[in-house]
Design a protein around this nucleic acid. Structure first.
Lengths: 152, 152
DNA sequence: TATGAAAAGGGCAAGGA
DNA sequence: TCCTTGCCCTTTTCATA
């Protein structure tokens, strides 16, 4: 795919907020015909710029009211350790993000749990699977911003 | 809406990964007719459990290859400061998440930028708008996990 | 880009297990 | 109550200009 033009960016901005619009509606908003917009969206999907269309759920309504960040130092710095950590975090559905970092904390985990008790279970599950040198948790009191929309 | 049953959870699990499926396909996967599934999805939307359907974009392909976490201490602990911080982060599209935390770091910001230079611009923009007592950035070398799917 | 037309899907109502 | 079936309208997809 060639470079994105202004209309592509408008389309992406809209679809990042609402991917349930009809092509008719989307076309109206960017000033293209239904069909012209359809072709652009298809090209964006084929180029992999649009990775997926997903449903976002309300964590509170699912009883996942607490976001927690876990700062982690690895016990060993080996490929095996990293593979094991990657596998363990992939298997644990409460863990939404896991990041290998610069600086003196090695890894950061972002997770969603019901409450502090549920965090403790997550912590125990994790240390049962991965050798950790140090873990400290910070709980989120308020999410002032949380979006999946990237700047386009 | 009453409590979620097993089928609702299956439906949510599928839609969190792919919201572009037809009702026919979704029905097949959970063992319901097109219409039965349609009614359940509609109820889940009306209950607000399904918050939105969105397109997820590929950050690399948009030139946003670097994820950064900023650990922040506030200059003042006042309502005005918090309002100002909330407004500033809401206005900055590179900032994907902003969290008020427990522990001795006050705020955590999760952002996506092109590179370290772009991070520096983000940093300057932020300190121009918000009085910060302390900021430290950690860059993400590798995202071993990153999902929008909550456990259901 | 636009048009038009075939195929697929969505929304709704009536009826059955 | 919850599911299925059938009908009609909208959307998607694609061929062609």
């Amino acid at each position: 795919m060639e470079k994105l033009d202004h209309l592509d960016r408008r389309i992406l901005a809209i679809l990042q907020r609402d991917a349930g619009l009809s092509l008719e509606e989307l076309g109206d908003r960017v000033g293209l015909s239904r069909n012209a917009v359809w072709r652009r969206v298809k090209a964006l999907e084929e180029a992999g710029i649009i990775r997926a269309r997903v449903a976002l759920l309300d964590p509170e309504k699912l009883g996942l009211g607490l976001t927690v960040f876990m700062m982690i130092k690895a016990e060993r710095h080996t490929t095996d350790w990293l593979d094991n950590f990657t596998r363990a975090t992939a298997d644990m559905p409460e863990i939404l993000g896991a990041y290998r970092m610069t600086g003196d904390l090695d890894y950061l985990i972002r997770a969603r749990v019901a409450d502090v008790k549920a965090y403790d279970r997550l912590y125990k599950d994790l240390i049962a699977r991965v050798d950790l040198h140090d873990v400290s948790a910070s709980f989120v009191m308020e999410e002032t911003k949380e979006t999946t929309a990237l700047p386009v």
